[in-house]
Design a protein around this nucleic acid. Structure first.
Ligand SMILES: [Mn+2]
Ligand SMILES: [Mn+2]
Ligand SMILES: [Zn+2]
Ligand SMILES: [Zn+2]
Lengths: 144, 144
DNA sequence: TTGCTTCTGATAATCATTATCATTTATGCG
DNA sequence: CGCATAAATGATAATGATTATCAGAAGCAA
């Protein structure tokens, strides 16, 4: 938490951007949330502290947070972008229940290695990837 | 080609929907395209044959074609949905060049198997998945 | 202060997709 | 064949998340 603020401050300095109350408040609110969050949800939270804040600013700061390496976009394909923590949250993929929407963060090093190899076999140098596994969770299966 | 039309016709009958000139024309145009195509691109093609056709109809028929199992949505994350053939085109994932946009269709049975296992290890029954590998293709690498 | 630049919030614009609705077209029946 | 009913179409408006615009506020440098 301390170091995230430091990273963000350093990023602003490096980019010749200013540290403002809004930027600080939005960053703090984002860091407190452990779930995957939309700009709208973050806006609602920040508004409670300062109801003069504009949602355009939330979108703008969220972009800065991503650029600073503290957040990552997650796209579950429902038309709304979500954001998750990046710092001290190493790369992972997502397992999503088609029935209740529950998500689990997963990582499989063998898959990651094979992805690299597949890319290379076609002459590509892999830079990143997206993998979403969809299914029915145990809970939902037992209900039916 | 013949069998795709048959599948679509059967699907319409099963769902009590009518076979119309527009539906036939849009399906034919879609089947002729081998690339990943947007609704807009398909609309432009169909319009050349019948400039009275509406793009809402293209969207509607594209949805029918998907439901009939002849097309699949592909989301490269650029805000536009693309469609690809499904019939006689077994499941595959996509390798996309971040520089030139070139796409390669790939499939790795080991990865597919591991995906199933990862899901099961969390109590999920895997129904489907999305995997996009992003990188720099050989061409683009040599240019730089 | 005084300029100058950056930030912000309100608002309008964008853009792919969906919804609405009046009109057209197909179908089933007497 | 008319007529009633239902489905399909095309034009158009609406949607909704995100982005652009722009006038005013706030910070900074001299
Ligand atoms: Mn996550
Ligand atoms: Mn494909
Ligand atoms: Zn579930
Ligand atoms: Zn390339």
């Amino acid at each position: 938490m301390k170091s995230e603020r430091k990273i963000f401050a350093d990023y602003l300095v490096k980019k010749n951007l200013r540290e403002t109350p809004q930027r600080g408040m939005i960053l703090d609110a984002f860091l407190k949330i452990e779930e995957h969050t939309t700009a709208e949800q973050l806006y609602d939270i920040v508004k409670k502290r300062d109801n003069t804040i504009g949602q355009a600013t939330v979108y703008r700061v969220l972009k800065l947070i991503c650029d600073a390496g503290l957040a990552r976009e997650v796209d579950f394909g429902d038309g709304v972008m979500r954001y998750e923590h990046c710092y001290n949250h190493p790369h992972h993929d997502h397992l999503v229940c088609r029935s209740c929407g529950k998500t689990v963060e997963v990582v499989d090093l063998v898959i990651e290695e094979l992805q690299k190899r597949v890319a290379e076999s076609f002459g590509f140098e892999l830079t990143d990837h997206e993998m979403y596994l969809y299914g029915i969770c145990g809970n939902c299966r037992h209900k039916k």
